[in-house]
Design a protein around this nucleic acid. Structure first.
Lengths: 342, 342
DNA sequence: ACACGTTTTGGGAGCGCTCCCAATTTGATT
DNA sequence: AATCAAATTGGGAGCGCTCCCAAAACGTGT
């Protein structure tokens, strides 16, 4: 048996409106009456009907997590799961719900977009790692759907949360420089993603900061996948760098395989530093020196920013929130470093 | 500007009802009128309002993915992400949405349960890896909420989808026996999870099937985590088994560390077989021989079963669906096996 | 041209809630 | 005891859709 407001009201001997006020913690209900209403609610285990509420308030208390591309690594890499976990926990504690949407290549994106974003299912959305030329962000902007991007989005009035990829990469490469390396290569992420671009910028900044010339033959584009990392490393071998900054741990695993095949030892023959600090980074031999980003906190932060947009019913253009969270260099064995010096 | 049925109807020169019929593909609308209506819909980009629909039909077209415990490994291990991915894709293609709920320890489970499951947000739910003594499943049963469990649930009228853990484990252990091992230990999963129990059953069955006595000192309980695997392996060392069946890859990584510390070589001194085939299994040295389960397909199957329950509005007790999906042994280096023989 | 059965169409009611306004009660003040 | 403002309460309207039933239109056979 499922009860309605009206029935609870009858049991408590008050009107619909009064019960509604009690539930929504509105003022103007005598404490004594409140008590009676709560008692009735408890008695029948009343739970307000979400759809009816939404219809009346045009708020659903649901936010969407939108993944525009099923990047191959997206589900084997813990980035996305951790982001999801952070976001879900934050939602839980604010009494919001998280709805998950994958915009899988091949699916009818138009159709999905309309069904999810324009049917009033969601109060707002979190967009994870959109590529820069994806139409999703422009569409959301056009339809005035409140959203937050996880991953920097330089153009337009886009609220975002990101890790400090530039400084993280810079720290990683500076560490290699400090260890005496001069011929430092990099395997980048896909350069149509801002994370790929930013990590490359950090690499350049580190070299330029120390007056080391950037050689284009030492820069190879990868795709954040293990195979991509392996292929990139193979292309890099002829240039014989003394160290490599790999833009993700997953690619570093591939690079390691390529090096092993070619008979190079890490870190003796070549030093490796990567990015992400996923569990495999410490499980593998040699353990990877890598840049850690606070993924779970980024998920929670994205929710917090989105909710602030939703609460702020002033209607008008709130200032754009751009949040960059600090990254941290975790030193292990693959750079052949501090461990041996300290 | 967002349009309603009524407004679209006016544009098409028909009534609300007719537009509703067209959208829901009901009969009794002349083709010529249908065309006019579709034209109007297209013209204004009309999208039905989800909440209004739900209120009228008491169907939301949303199903929930409920994770009862935030098992530590749950988000670093790709099991859950892959399950999610399979489920999400299946939802997409049936025009359903997936809502994600974590029942995080410490959160007010009662409150979350009521808010999510009893407010009419969901048409049904998928429950992932519930522990056997969790109250979630009994509650769902009591509240008559349609749901499917991912993970076998032996008691009661519970629909479930699971991997064939028993046979998978049996195959793994039989492989070790075939390689000549007799003193085979196991590191189990948590035994309050049915997956933990079943993998242990498979281990026992394999031994018993070959007439090898099961020795309790060779059975150690782990918890599916890396640290748990390491600790379990350490407890196992004094019994000096010649092979170990570890109930998950993640635990195998831990076990490997323990063995390395103790100076045992794998597979020369001890053979290892594990379960799951997550990416780390092939990235690590030695690559793990392991049992693969079709996680993504299990997610999709869970959705399919749930939708079949939802469609079947006959109301009454549909026969319980118990689906067990085949597992497969993937032979690599850690068992010191076929590779050297073939 | 009429009657009758069938198909197509329109509109009222209702899903369960919130919001607003008007009616009622309360209580402080004279 | 009467007055008035403020606090409290009740009920109508409406959110946007579906469902049902009755009305209208259509088509066939006489």
């Amino acid at each position: 048996m499922t009860y309605t407001l009206e029935q609870v009201a009858k049991i408590a001997g008050v009107s619909r409106s009064t019960v509604s006020r009690v539930i929504n913690q509105q003022p103007h209900v005598r404490p004594q009456v409140q008590e009676r209403v709560w008692e009735a609610i408890r008695q029948v285990g009343y739970q307000p009907h979400a759809a009816a509420r939404s219809l009346a308030t045009s708020r659903t208390h649901v936010i969407g997590m939108i993944i525009p591309e099923a990047v191959p690594t997206l589900f084997t890499d813990p980035f996305f799961p951790l982001l999801l976990r952070g976001a879900t926990e934050a939602c839980n504690s604010h009494r919001y719900q998280l709805m998950l949407s994958l915009f899988i290549p091949g699916a009818d994106r138009q159709e999905i977009y309309r069904r999810i974003l324009r049917s009033g299912y969601l109060d707002g959305a979190i967009v994870a790692s959109a590529s820069l030329d994806d139409s999703l962000v422009p569409n959301l902007l056009r339809d005035r759907i409140p959203f937050v991007s996880v991953g920097r989005y330089p153009n337009g009035r886009v609220h975002y949360v990101d890790a400090d990829n530039i400084n993280g990469a810079r720290m990683a490469v500076e560490h290699l420089i400090r260890l005496g390396h001069r011929r430092i290569a990099t395997i980048t992420g896909p350069l149509d993603m801002i994370a790929g671009q930013d990590r490359l910028s950090g690499y350049r900044q580190a070299l330029e900061g120390r007056g080391i010339p950037v050689e284009e033959e030492l820069i190879v584009e990868g795709d954040f996948s293990e195979n991509g990392g392996m292929a990139a490393m193979q292309r890099l071998l002829p240039a014989s760098p003394s160290a490599v900054f790999v833009a993700s741990d997953t690619m570093a695993v591939g690079a390691l395989k390529a090096l092993r095949q070619a008979g190079w030892r890490v870190p003796q023959d070549i030093a490796l530093v990567s990015f992400d600090d996923i569990p495999i980074a410490s499980a593998i031999e040699p353990a990877l020196t890598t840049v850690r980003q606070p993924i779970e906190r980024m998920g929670a932060m994205a929710v917090a920013v989105l909710l602030s947009l939703l609460e702020d019913s002033s209607g008008e253009e709130s200032p754009v929130q751009r949040i960059v969270m600090p990254t941290e260099l975790v030193i292990r064995a693959s750079c052949g470093s501090a461990l041996s010096r300290s």
